[in-house]
Protein backbone atom coordinates (compact mmCIF):
# COMPACT_ATOMS: atom_id res chain seq x y z
CA UNK A 1 0.00 0.00 0.00
CA UNK A 2 1.36 3.44 -0.86
CA UNK A 3 1.60 6.07 1.83
CA UNK A 4 2.17 9.79 1.93
CA UNK A 5 3.28 12.74 3.98
CA UNK A 6 2.60 16.46 3.77
CA UNK A 7 5.23 19.15 4.15
CA UNK A 8 4.12 21.65 6.81
CA UNK A 9 7.28 23.75 7.10
CA UNK A 10 9.78 23.15 4.30
CA UNK A 11 12.61 25.26 5.73
CA UNK A 12 15.35 24.62 3.22
CA UNK A 13 14.67 21.05 2.14
CA UNK A 14 14.97 19.03 -1.07
CA UNK A 15 14.32 15.47 -2.19
CA UNK A 16 17.63 14.05 -3.36
CA UNK A 17 19.67 10.86 -3.65
CA UNK A 18 23.36 10.00 -3.96
CA UNK A 19 23.67 12.03 -7.16
CA UNK A 20 23.58 12.05 -10.94
CA UNK A 21 26.76 10.07 -11.58
CA UNK A 22 25.99 9.98 -15.32
CA UNK A 23 25.65 13.80 -15.37
CA UNK A 24 29.27 14.97 -15.70
CA UNK A 25 29.70 13.20 -19.06
CA UNK A 26 26.84 15.44 -20.31
CA UNK A 27 28.10 18.61 -18.66
CA UNK A 28 25.84 18.38 -15.59
CA UNK A 29 27.18 18.44 -12.03
CA UNK A 30 26.74 15.24 -10.03
CA UNK A 31 24.82 17.00 -7.20
CA UNK A 32 23.00 14.75 -4.70
CA UNK A 33 23.35 14.48 -0.91
CA UNK A 34 26.33 16.54 0.19
CA UNK A 35 26.98 14.38 3.27
CA UNK A 36 26.90 10.99 1.55
CA UNK A 37 27.65 8.99 4.71
CA UNK A 38 24.71 10.46 6.62
CA UNK A 39 22.41 10.03 3.61
CA UNK A 40 23.37 6.38 3.13
CA UNK A 41 23.01 5.74 6.86
CA UNK A 42 19.51 7.26 6.87
CA UNK A 43 18.38 5.06 4.00
CA UNK A 44 19.92 1.94 5.52
CA UNK A 45 18.28 2.68 8.90
CA UNK A 46 14.95 3.05 7.09
CA UNK A 47 15.43 -0.28 5.31
CA UNK A 48 15.94 1.32 1.90
CA UNK A 49 18.55 0.98 -0.84
CA UNK A 50 21.45 3.44 -0.41
CA UNK A 51 20.50 5.48 -3.45
CA UNK A 52 16.76 5.81 -2.73
CA UNK A 53 15.31 9.34 -2.73
CA UNK A 54 15.31 10.99 0.73
CA UNK A 55 14.98 14.46 2.26
CA UNK A 56 18.00 16.70 2.76
CA UNK A 57 17.47 19.57 5.22
CA UNK A 58 19.91 22.47 5.28
CA UNK A 59 20.20 24.58 8.44
CA UNK A 60 16.51 25.47 8.89
CA UNK A 61 13.76 23.90 11.00
CA UNK A 62 11.43 21.48 9.22
CA UNK A 63 8.04 19.89 9.89
CA UNK A 64 5.96 17.31 8.04
CA UNK A 65 2.79 15.35 8.81
CA UNK A 66 2.47 11.64 8.08
CA UNK A 67 -0.90 10.90 6.47
CA UNK A 68 -0.28 7.15 6.78
CA UNK A 69 1.81 5.04 9.17
CA UNK A 70 5.48 5.45 8.27
CA UNK A 71 8.90 4.34 9.43
CA UNK A 72 11.59 7.02 9.22
CA UNK A 73 15.24 7.56 10.16
CA UNK A 74 16.92 10.92 10.72
CA UNK A 75 20.69 11.35 10.46
CA UNK A 76 23.22 14.12 9.85
CA UNK A 77 24.06 17.05 12.12
CA UNK A 78 22.82 17.03 15.75
CA UNK A 79 19.24 18.34 16.11
CA UNK A 80 16.05 18.01 18.14
CA UNK A 81 13.63 15.48 16.66
CA UNK A 82 10.07 15.09 17.86
CA UNK A 83 7.43 12.72 16.49
CA UNK A 84 3.88 13.41 17.60
CA UNK A 85 5.38 15.66 20.27
CA UNK A 86 7.59 12.86 21.67
CA UNK A 87 11.34 13.38 21.73
CA UNK A 88 12.74 10.78 19.38
CA UNK A 89 16.26 9.52 18.70
CA UNK A 90 18.39 10.42 15.73
CA UNK A 91 20.38 7.69 13.92
CA UNK A 92 17.69 5.06 14.79
CA UNK A 93 14.55 3.91 12.96
CA UNK A 94 11.45 5.66 14.33
CA UNK A 95 7.78 4.78 13.79
CA UNK A 96 5.41 7.58 12.86
CA UNK A 97 1.66 7.01 13.14
CA UNK A 98 -0.82 8.43 10.64
CA UNK A 99 -1.58 12.05 11.54
CA UNK A 100 1.55 12.61 13.61
CA UNK A 101 3.87 15.54 12.98
CA UNK A 102 7.60 15.00 12.55
CA UNK A 103 9.50 18.12 13.61
CA UNK A 104 13.20 18.85 13.23
CA UNK A 105 14.46 21.85 15.16
CA UNK A 106 17.77 23.40 16.02
CA UNK A 107 20.17 21.80 13.52
CA UNK A 108 23.52 22.61 15.15
CA UNK A 109 27.28 22.00 15.04
CA UNK A 110 26.74 20.80 11.47
CA UNK A 111 24.59 22.13 8.64
CA UNK A 112 22.67 19.27 7.03
CA UNK A 113 20.31 16.52 8.16
CA UNK A 114 18.66 13.66 6.28
CA UNK A 115 15.22 12.06 6.66
CA UNK A 116 14.70 8.71 4.97
CA UNK A 117 11.26 7.11 4.87
CA UNK A 118 10.88 3.33 4.57
CA UNK A 119 9.72 2.65 1.01
CA UNK A 120 11.16 6.00 -0.13
CA UNK A 121 9.36 8.46 -2.42
CA UNK A 122 7.90 8.28 -5.90
CA UNK A 123 9.57 11.26 -7.61
CA UNK A 124 10.67 12.25 -11.14
CA UNK A 125 14.17 11.37 -12.24
CA UNK A 126 16.64 12.80 -14.77
CA UNK A 127 19.57 10.73 -16.04
CA UNK A 128 18.88 8.20 -13.31
CA UNK A 129 18.71 10.62 -10.37
CA UNK A 130 16.11 12.73 -8.58
CA UNK A 131 18.76 15.18 -7.29
CA UNK A 132 17.78 18.79 -8.00
CA UNK A 133 19.82 20.68 -10.60
CA UNK A 134 19.24 24.41 -10.25
CA UNK A 135 20.87 25.29 -13.59
CA UNK A 136 18.74 22.91 -15.65
CA UNK A 137 15.74 23.72 -13.45
CA UNK A 138 15.14 20.11 -12.45
CA UNK A 139 13.88 18.93 -9.08
CA UNK A 140 10.83 19.05 -6.81
CA UNK A 141 10.05 22.33 -5.12
CA UNK A 142 9.02 21.50 -1.58
CA UNK A 143 6.54 24.09 -0.34
CA UNK A 144 4.04 24.14 2.49
CA UNK A 145 1.24 21.69 1.73
CA UNK A 146 3.27 19.63 -0.77
CA UNK A 147 2.35 15.94 -0.64
CA UNK A 148 5.09 13.35 -1.09
CA UNK A 149 3.93 9.84 -2.03
CA UNK A 150 5.81 6.96 -0.43
CA UNK A 151 5.97 3.51 -1.97
CA UNK A 152 4.86 1.71 1.22
CA UNK A 153 3.39 2.28 4.65
CA UNK A 154 4.74 0.68 7.81
CA UNK A 155 2.51 -0.31 10.71
CA UNK A 156 3.57 1.29 14.02
CA UNK A 157 6.22 -0.64 15.87
CA UNK A 158 6.96 1.63 18.80
CA UNK A 159 5.78 0.61 22.22
CA UNK A 160 2.22 2.01 21.91
CA UNK A 161 1.53 3.08 25.51
CA UNK A 162 4.71 4.74 26.62
CA UNK A 163 6.08 5.73 23.20
CA UNK A 164 9.44 4.29 24.13
CA UNK A 165 11.85 3.91 21.26
CA UNK A 166 11.83 0.33 20.10
CA UNK A 167 15.15 0.43 18.33
CA UNK A 168 18.48 0.73 20.11
CA UNK A 169 20.83 -0.25 17.33
CA UNK A 170 23.67 1.85 18.67
CA UNK A 171 25.27 2.98 15.41
CA UNK A 172 28.53 4.87 15.94
CA UNK A 173 27.52 8.36 14.87
CA UNK A 174 30.18 10.36 13.09
CA UNK A 175 31.66 13.16 15.22
CA UNK A 176 30.45 16.66 14.39
CA UNK A 177 32.69 19.62 15.18
CA UNK A 178 33.02 23.33 14.49
CA UNK A 179 36.69 22.97 13.48
CA UNK A 180 36.98 19.90 11.28
CA UNK A 181 40.30 18.56 9.98
CA UNK A 182 39.94 17.89 6.27
CA UNK A 183 42.10 15.30 4.48
CA UNK A 184 43.34 16.21 1.02
CA UNK A 185 45.60 14.62 -1.57
CA UNK A 186 47.96 16.58 -3.82
CA UNK A 187 46.12 18.02 -6.80
CA UNK A 188 47.33 17.39 -10.34
CA UNK A 189 48.59 21.00 -10.58
CA UNK A 190 50.18 21.31 -7.12
CA UNK A 191 53.61 21.99 -8.68
CA UNK A 192 52.31 25.23 -10.24
CA UNK A 193 51.97 26.71 -6.74
CA UNK A 194 55.64 26.15 -5.83
CA UNK A 195 56.50 26.58 -2.14
CA UNK A 196 53.28 28.48 -1.44
CA UNK A 197 51.36 25.17 -1.67
CA UNK A 198 52.52 24.45 1.90
CA UNK A 199 50.37 27.32 3.21
CA UNK A 200 47.35 25.07 2.78
CA UNK A 201 48.55 22.93 5.69
CA UNK A 202 49.68 25.68 8.06
CA UNK A 203 46.65 27.97 7.81
CA UNK A 204 43.33 27.93 9.65
CA UNK A 205 40.62 28.79 7.14
CA UNK A 206 37.28 30.40 8.00
CA UNK A 207 34.17 29.22 6.15
CA UNK A 208 32.60 32.17 4.29
CA UNK A 209 28.82 32.81 4.24
CA UNK A 210 29.06 32.72 0.43
CA UNK A 211 29.50 28.94 0.56
CA UNK A 212 26.88 26.62 -0.91
CA UNK A 213 26.38 23.22 -2.58
CA UNK A 214 28.55 24.35 -5.51
CA UNK A 215 31.53 25.11 -3.36
CA UNK A 216 32.83 26.36 -0.04
CA UNK A 217 34.73 29.63 0.07
CA UNK A 218 37.40 29.78 2.72
CA UNK A 219 39.26 32.85 3.99
CA UNK A 220 42.91 32.67 5.12
CA UNK A 221 46.47 32.70 3.78
CA UNK A 222 46.32 31.71 0.12
CA UNK A 223 48.77 29.67 -1.92
CA UNK A 224 49.57 31.47 -5.15
CA UNK A 225 50.06 30.08 -8.63
CA UNK A 226 53.61 30.81 -9.84
CA UNK A 227 52.73 30.66 -13.57
CA UNK A 228 50.66 33.06 -15.66
CA UNK A 229 50.02 30.86 -18.71
CA UNK A 230 46.38 30.25 -19.58
CA UNK A 231 44.85 26.91 -18.59
CA UNK A 232 42.67 25.00 -21.06
CA UNK A 233 39.25 24.08 -19.64
CA UNK A 234 39.44 20.70 -17.95
CA UNK A 235 37.12 18.41 -16.07
CA UNK A 236 37.52 19.13 -12.36
CA UNK A 237 36.73 16.56 -9.66
CA UNK A 238 34.37 17.16 -6.75
CA UNK A 239 36.64 18.23 -3.88
CA UNK A 240 39.02 20.22 -6.09
CA UNK A 241 40.68 23.11 -4.24
CA UNK A 242 41.32 26.16 -6.44
CA UNK A 243 42.52 29.70 -5.85
CA UNK A 244 40.37 31.71 -8.28
CA UNK A 245 40.78 35.07 -6.56
CA UNK A 246 43.04 36.89 -4.14
CA UNK A 247 40.36 36.76 -1.45
CA UNK A 248 39.36 33.18 -0.92
CA UNK A 249 40.11 29.53 -1.44
CA UNK A 250 37.40 27.66 -3.35
CA UNK A 251 36.64 24.03 -2.49
CA UNK A 252 34.30 22.56 -5.07
CA UNK A 253 31.48 20.34 -3.81
CA UNK A 254 28.89 18.21 -5.59
CA UNK A 255 27.11 21.10 -7.35
CA UNK A 256 30.32 22.16 -9.11
CA UNK A 257 30.42 23.04 -12.79
CA UNK A 258 32.02 20.06 -14.49
CA UNK A 259 34.76 21.97 -16.33
CA UNK A 260 36.91 24.92 -15.31
CA UNK A 261 40.13 26.62 -16.22
CA UNK A 262 41.76 26.96 -12.80
CA UNK A 263 44.68 24.82 -11.64
CA UNK A 264 43.79 22.21 -9.00
CA UNK A 265 45.96 22.63 -5.90
CA UNK A 266 44.60 19.71 -3.89
CA UNK A 267 41.57 17.41 -3.78
CA UNK A 268 39.49 16.70 -0.66
CA UNK A 269 39.02 12.98 0.05
CA UNK A 270 35.58 11.38 -0.33
CA UNK A 271 35.23 10.91 3.44
CA UNK A 272 36.26 14.49 4.23
CA UNK A 273 33.78 15.88 1.68
CA UNK A 274 31.09 14.61 4.07
CA UNK A 275 32.66 16.67 6.87
CA UNK A 276 32.83 19.76 4.63
CA UNK A 277 29.14 19.31 3.84
CA UNK A 278 28.53 19.97 7.54
CA UNK A 279 30.79 23.06 7.81
CA UNK A 280 28.86 26.22 8.62
CA UNK A 281 29.87 29.80 7.93
CA UNK A 282 32.15 30.80 10.80
CA UNK A 283 33.51 27.30 11.35
CA UNK A 284 37.27 26.92 10.94
CA UNK A 285 38.80 24.30 8.70
CA UNK A 286 42.34 22.93 8.70
CA UNK A 287 43.75 20.71 5.98
CA UNK A 288 45.88 17.60 6.42
CA UNK A 289 47.85 15.98 3.62
CA UNK A 290 47.22 12.33 2.89
CA UNK A 291 47.69 9.86 0.04
CA UNK A 292 45.15 8.40 -2.36
CA UNK A 293 45.84 4.92 -0.95
CA UNK A 294 45.09 6.08 2.62
CA UNK A 295 42.04 8.05 1.51
CA UNK A 296 40.67 4.99 -0.28
CA UNK A 297 41.25 2.84 2.80
CA UNK A 298 39.45 5.37 5.03
CA UNK A 299 36.52 5.57 2.63
CA UNK A 300 36.23 1.78 2.50
CA UNK A 301 36.28 1.51 6.29
CA UNK A 302 33.29 3.88 6.40
CA UNK A 303 31.53 1.85 3.68
CA UNK A 304 32.09 -1.37 5.64
CA UNK A 305 30.66 0.24 8.75
CA UNK A 306 27.51 0.99 6.74
CA UNK A 307 27.47 -2.60 5.43
CA UNK A 308 27.49 -3.91 9.01
CA UNK A 309 24.63 -1.59 9.84
CA UNK A 310 22.72 -2.89 6.84
CA UNK A 311 23.13 -6.49 8.03
CA UNK A 312 21.84 -5.57 11.49
CA UNK A 313 18.86 -3.75 9.98
CA UNK A 314 18.09 -6.63 7.61
CA UNK A 315 18.01 -9.03 10.54
CA UNK A 316 15.90 -6.80 12.82
CA UNK A 317 13.47 -5.70 10.10
CA UNK A 318 13.22 -9.28 8.86
CA UNK A 319 12.20 -10.49 12.30
CA UNK A 320 9.63 -7.70 12.55
CA UNK A 321 8.33 -8.40 9.07
CA UNK A 322 9.34 -5.00 7.66
CA UNK A 323 10.36 -4.94 4.02
CA UNK A 324 11.55 -7.94 2.07
CA UNK A 325 14.03 -9.34 4.60
CA UNK A 326 13.82 -12.81 6.09
CA UNK A 327 11.13 -13.54 8.72
CA UNK A 328 12.12 -15.20 11.96
CA UNK A 329 10.60 -18.49 10.84
CA UNK A 330 12.64 -18.41 7.65
CA UNK A 331 16.02 -18.20 9.42
CA UNK A 332 18.10 -21.36 9.39
CA UNK A 333 18.21 -23.07 12.79
CA UNK A 334 21.16 -22.31 15.04
CA UNK A 335 23.70 -25.12 15.04
CA UNK A 336 22.90 -27.77 17.63
CA UNK A 337 19.21 -26.82 17.72
Amino acid sequence: MTGSLIILQPGHSVVTDLGRTKGPAYGLPVNGALDQFSAKAANILAGNADNDPLLELTALDFRMRATTDLLIAVTGAPLDLTVGGRESPQWEPVSVRAGEVVAVRGIRTGLRAYIAVHGSFTVPSLLGSCAPDTVVGFGLKLVEGFRLETRTTTAPITQPHFGLPLFRLGITKPAFTTNPVIDVTDGPDVAEFGDTAGLLFTTQYAVSPRSNHIGLRLGGALPERQLTSEVLSRGVPVGAIEVPSRDELLVLHRGRGVTAGYPVLAVVTSRSLDLLAQARPGHTVTFRRTTVAEATATHRTACLELERLRQTINTVFGLLGIGAGQRWYELSPASGA
Binding site: K22, S233, P237
Partner: peptide, 22 residues
Protein backbone atom coordinates in the same frame (compact mmCIF):
# COMPACT_ATOMS: atom_id res chain seq x y z
CA UNK B 1 33.54 3.83 -13.34
CA UNK B 2 30.91 6.60 -13.30
CA UNK B 3 31.95 8.28 -16.52
CA UNK B 4 34.47 10.44 -18.31
CA UNK B 5 34.60 14.18 -18.97
CA UNK B 6 36.77 14.89 -22.02
CA UNK B 7 37.64 18.48 -22.93
CA UNK B 8 40.58 19.64 -25.13
CA UNK B 9 43.71 17.75 -24.17
CA UNK B 10 42.46 15.97 -21.06
CA UNK B 11 39.78 13.66 -19.78
CA UNK B 12 38.62 13.37 -16.17
CA UNK B 13 37.68 9.79 -15.29
CA UNK B 14 35.40 9.55 -12.24
CA UNK B 15 34.90 6.35 -10.27
CA UNK B 16 33.47 4.89 -7.06
CA UNK B 17 36.43 4.29 -4.72
CA UNK B 18 34.54 1.50 -2.93
CA UNK B 19 33.99 -0.59 -6.06
CA UNK B 20 37.31 0.17 -7.73
CA UNK B 21 40.44 2.26 -7.10
CA UNK B 22 42.69 4.81 -8.74
Amino acid sequence: IHGAVPTYDSVLVEFDPYLTSA
